[in-house]
Design a protein around this nucleic acid. Structure first.
Lengths: 166, 166
DNA sequence: GCAACCAGTTGCAATTCGCAATCAGTTTAG
DNA sequence: CTAAACTGATTGCGAATTGCAACTGGTTGC
């Protein structure tokens, strides 16, 4: 896991060297949209069933790359709380574009596609708002009060609506 | 390489099952920005040095996923011409966001970062124009004549300007 | 004819992946 | 107080993937 073997200084290549595998972006996704902040939450509450050694390894590299941080949970001596950094939060547009593409071309299920659809329809303006919400919950940033439900709440409500209403 | 083991119907997960490795998106990148259309071009003219068996394997899965197509080159009985499909062309926003993120946070070299910078500054409007150009060169689509150099030409000129002018 | 070029394929060693079991400390229920 | 459950991982091991180098069978240009 040494970072000595850099292939080129191309931004796409460098991004892929950090994120180019089947799990890293899924962990980010769960932290962003599923509000998972503990190891166990990421391990058990995901659709795909990552195994614990892979999760531990990916969290380690995401920490090294400063995409997430880890701090102790004051309520539990063993729990750690993982948070997105600004750098991690700014992966949202990447995920949003990837979700939009997958939604358009791959066999997405209805309940898991609804977030992608809303996020795609909302466009960059909605992404920016959601990123501000993430800055509040992950970085403790102050945020102007908005009227109405947050983007996170709207996405979650839409998801539950599809799940319950079928 | 059977596609039986699908992990979930989430659009991000499905996208990662197709593109979640260190090479697939680099091949797409070279086809889009480097105008590589033949096996040898993709093999030898890339910064990163993919090996031929990996390239052959990735081209195969990209074909299966309908992200690219392959046709015989009429000028050479052995050459194949790889082209992006509409589905492949619409990966441009994903690459653009990934490039913008990498440009902002990773140790990108000046000459390889200039395209990312221009594409990021140009925004979705420039992406749309570039996608139209790709539709012309890869799908044979007719395109309204534009005044001035194309996006592809502008990116290439900027790259060469940095390479020569340092 | 022959060297260079074409798109891959093959063999093999090294690495990574994925599953299951396990670990040691912490908290909670009774 | 004790036992069970929970915490964030770690370990062992077989399977799959990766990466390098050599090679194949054919085509093209000189």
């Amino acid at each position: 896991m040494t970072d000595a073997h850099q292939r080129s200084g191309c931004p796409i290549n460098l991004s892929l060297e950090v994120l180019g595998d089947k799990w890293s972006l899924l962990i980010i996704r769960d932290m962003m949209f599923g509000n998972r902040r503990h190891f166990r939450e990421l391990l058990t509450k995901s659709e795909e069933g990552i195994s614990s050694n892979i999760l531990a390894d990916r969290l380690k590299t995401l920490l090294e790359q400063r995409i997430i941080t880890r701090e102790d949970d004051p309520t539990h001596k063993q729990k750690g709380i993982y948070s997105l950094t600004e750098q991690g939060i700014e992966l949202l547009p990447v995920l949003a574009q990837m979700a939009a593409w997958g939604y358009k071309y791959l066999p997405v299920t209805e309940e898991l596609g609804i977030r992608a659809r809303l996020l795609s329809e909302g466009g960059p303006k909605m992404w920016t708002e959601f990123m501000d919400e993430l800055r509040e919950s992950h970085l403790g940033a102050k945020r102007r009060r908005r009227s109405g439900p947050s983007v996170g709440e709207r996405l979650q409500a839409a998801y539950e609506s599809v799940v319950n209403g079928r």
